[in-house]
Structure formats: structure tokens, C-alpha cells
Simulated assay, not measured.
Amino acid sequence: MIRYDEADNQPADRPAGSFYAQDLAAAADLNRERQKPHIIKAQDMVVEDCAQGLLTHIANPTLNALDYDIDAYIQELPPDGRSGKHRHMAEEFIFFLEGRGYSLHWDVDIAEMGETFNWKMDDVPKRFEWEAGDWMFIPVNTAHQHFNLDGDEPARFLSATSRVFKWLGVHDLEQLEAAPTYRGY
């Protein structure tokens, strides 16, 4: 049987909590979040020149708090240009919007596992040709790089990844080579 303290009607010898009040506050916060815009206007998207290349971020929690699980951007490759080379734990979906080119994929395996992972990357990549209207799947942890074959026009593609690996604490993004257009931070 639980003994109650007569002064505050709380069980004796137990700390008082506010868990239910916290749950109510969290539900109210979530309800406020649901009222945020469901459309991100083009002028609100963030353009970034980074080691991977020129990116226009279209899905990111900084842009919209409703976006919990997808990171997406549009990348532009200049004429005869290329992206940076990187790998990440999340699989990636790419839809080619404009242009034609190819992508290189290097399979990556675990070489050693201790407190951190050490990776072994294939020496010879696989080459995949693409053009506007095609889509590409990049498997988990595959190193990859994209090349524009057109010397006159840029190529553009939409890239999307799941944020679940970030939530789990194993995002493990590694930039292996910077895009030639990148000038540093």
C-alpha cells in the first residue's frame, strides 16, 4: 500500500514530478509545429557553395520544422564540371533534372571495427551514365562522384537522403575530394 504525505497528498518518500505536464507541453508544441507552412517557397531555400559543389537546399529542418526525416537538395554541375567525392551511411535517391553525364561509385567495406569504423574503398569505381529524366540509387556507404559531360550547359539533379542515420548517431559523412569550384569556408 502506498503511504501519502498529508500536506501535499503525494506519496511519502518519493520525488514529486511533472511528467504529465511535460507531455501536455510537448503535445502543444507539436500542435504549433503542425501549423507551420507545408510549402517552402523558392526564395526561402538556401543556396550553398560547399565542398560537394553548388547546392540549393530544399528539405532541411532549418527550412521547415515539419521536415523530420528527409534531407534534399538540388545540385548544379557546371559545364564539363564535377561534384565533390563523398560517402555517407544513408542511401541516396537522385533524379536528374537537366543535362547528361556519369557517376562513379566506389564500394566501401568495413576494414576494421573498434571504437570507430575504418573503411576500405575499392580502387576501381563502377561507372553509370545518366541523362535528364533518369534516376539513380546510391547504396548505403557507397563513395560517389558526379560528372557533367556537356561543355556548354550545366547539369542539375535532385538528391534526397533519409535523416534516420543522423538520429541514430551514425551519420558518418566523409568528404573525400572537394568539387573544383569550391574555394573553402
Score class of each variant (00 low, 15 high):
residue 25 A to L: 08
residue 40 I to G: 07
residue 18 S to K: 10
residue 125 P to Y: 02
residue 19 F to S: 05
residue 18 S to N: 15
residue 38 H to Y: 12
residue 137 F to H: 15
residue 63 L to Y: 09
residue 46 V to N: 08
residue 43 Q to K: 14
residue 83 S to P: 07
residue 69 D to R: 10
residue 115 E to N: 15
residue 139 P to A: 10
residue 77 L to H: 05
residue 133 G to F: 00
residue 128 F to V: 14
residue 101 G to E: 04
residue 127 R to W: 03
residue 137 F to N: 03
residue 122 D to V: 04
residue 125 P to K: 04
residue 25 A to F: 07
residue 119 W to I: 00
residue 107 D to R: 12
residue 152 D to H: 12
residue 118 N to T: 15
residue 49 D to T: 05
residue 59 A to L: 15
residue 73 Y to H: 15
residue 84 G to E: 10
residue 42 A to S: 11
residue 88 H to I: 14
residue 126 K to T: 11
residue 84 G to K: 09
residue 17 G to K: 02
residue 91 E to K: 04
residue 20 Y to I: 11
residue 154 P to K: 11
residue 118 N to M: 09
residue 47 V to I: 04
residue 99 G to E: 08
residue 108 V to C: 13
residue 26 A to M: 07
residue 41 K to D: 11
residue 84 G to A: 09
residue 62 T to P: 00
residue 57 H to M: 12
residue 143 A to C: 06
residue 29 D to I: 00
residue 118 N to V: 15
residue 138 I to S: 06
residue 21 A to K: 12
residue 139 P to I: 03
residue 130 W to F: 13
residue 100 R to C: 05
residue 115 E to A: 10
residue 139 P to T: 03
residue 94 I to S: 05
residue 58 I to E: 02
residue 21 A to H: 02
residue 62 T to E: 12
residue 67 D to F: 06
residue 83 S to G: 03
residue 34 R to C: 04
residue 57 H to A: 02
residue 152 D to P: 01
residue 75 Q to K: 05
residue 59 A to K: 05
residue 70 I to S: 06
residue 147 F to W: 05
residue 16 A to W: 06
residue 12 A to D: 01
residue 73 Y to L: 13
residue 53 G to M: 05
residue 78 P to Y: 02
residue 108 V to R: 04
residue 135 W to A: 07
residue 113 M to Q: 15
residue 146 H to P: 03
residue 25 A to R: 09
residue 65 A to G: 07
residue 113 M to S: 14
residue 45 M to E: 12
residue 127 R to V: 15
residue 111 A to K: 14
residue 86 H to P: 00
residue 17 G to E: 10
residue 128 F to D: 06
residue 88 H to C: 08
residue 33 E to G: 00
residue 116 T to M: 09
residue 59 A to F: 10
residue 67 D to A: 07
residue 33 E to P: 00
residue 92 E to R: 09
residue 141 N to R: 13
residue 98 E to Q: 15
residue 53 G to L: 01
residue 77 L to M: 11
residue 21 A to E: 15
residue 94 I to H: 01
residue 48 E to F: 00
residue 130 W to K: 08
residue 32 R to T: 08
residue 130 W to D: 01
residue 104 L to R: 14
residue 41 K to R: 13
residue 30 L to I: 08
residue 99 G to W: 02
residue 146 H to Q: 10
residue 101 G to L: 06
residue 65 A to E: 13
residue 107 D to T: 07
residue 99 G to Y: 06
residue 19 F to K: 06
residue 117 F to Y: 14
residue 98 E to N: 09
residue 154 P to R: 08
residue 18 S to L: 11
residue 140 V to I: 04
residue 19 F to A: 11
residue 71 D to R: 08
residue 35 Q to H: 09
residue 13 D to A: 11
residue 22 Q to S: 13
residue 12 A to N: 04
residue 32 R to Y: 04
residue 69 D to T: 07
residue 62 T to Q: 11
residue 131 E to N: 04
residue 32 R to H: 10
residue 68 Y to G: 12
residue 27 A to F: 07
residue 123 D to T: 12
residue 58 I to P: 01
residue 79 P to L: 06
residue 74 I to S: 08
residue 60 N to M: 07
residue 58 I to K: 10
